[in-house]
Amino acid sequence: MAVLAWLLIPLFAAIGAAIWGGWASRSRTTEDVAELAGYARFRDAMEKSRTGGGPVG
Rank of each mutant, 00 (worst) to 15 (best):
A24C: 09
A18I: 12
D32P: 01
V3D: 03
R50A: 15
F12T: 04
S27C: 09
A34S: 09
S25I: 10
A2C: 07
F12C: 09
R41C: 02
P10T: 02
S27R: 10
P10A: 02
T29L: 15
I19K: 00
G57W: 07
L11K: 01
D44K: 11
R50C: 09
G22L: 15
R26L: 15
P10Y: 05
I15M: 06
L36W: 02
R28P: 02
L36K: 00
S49Q: 13
V3K: 01
G54Q: 04
G52K: 10
D32F: 09
V33H: 03
I19A: 06
L11E: 02
Y39H: 10
W20Q: 06
A17P: 03
A18R: 04
P55G: 12
R28C: 05
W6K: 03
G53M: 03
A37V: 08
T30K: 15
G16D: 04
L4H: 01
F12M: 07
G53Y: 08
G16I: 08
V33E: 07
G54M: 06
T30I: 15
Y39V: 15
A24G: 07
S49H: 07
I19F: 04
P10S: 05
R26G: 15
L8R: 05
L8H: 02
F42Q: 08
W6C: 03
Y39L: 12
G57K: 02
A40H: 02
T29N: 12
T51W: 13
G53A: 14
F42E: 07
E35V: 11
E35K: 10
R28E: 06
A17C: 10
A17Y: 09
R43M: 07
L7S: 03
A45H: 08
V33L: 12
R50S: 13
I9F: 09
S49M: 14
A24M: 10
M1N: 00
G52F: 15
F42D: 08
T29V: 13
G53R: 01
W6A: 07
L11P: 01
R26T: 14
M46G: 01
K48E: 13
Y39G: 07
M46R: 04
A40N: 02
E47C: 07
G54P: 04
A5K: 05
G21V: 05
E35R: 12
A5C: 03
P10E: 03
G21W: 08
W23R: 02
W20M: 10
G57I: 13
S49A: 15
E47M: 14
T51V: 12
E31V: 01
W6P: 00
G52H: 12
I15V: 15
L11G: 04
A17H: 05
G16N: 05
E35H: 06
R50M: 14
K48H: 12
T51Y: 10
R50Y: 14
A24Q: 09
L7Y: 00
M1F: 10
A5P: 03
S25C: 10
D32G: 03
S25L: 14
V33S: 05
V33D: 04
T30Q: 15
G16F: 14
G38N: 12
D32W: 07
I19H: 00
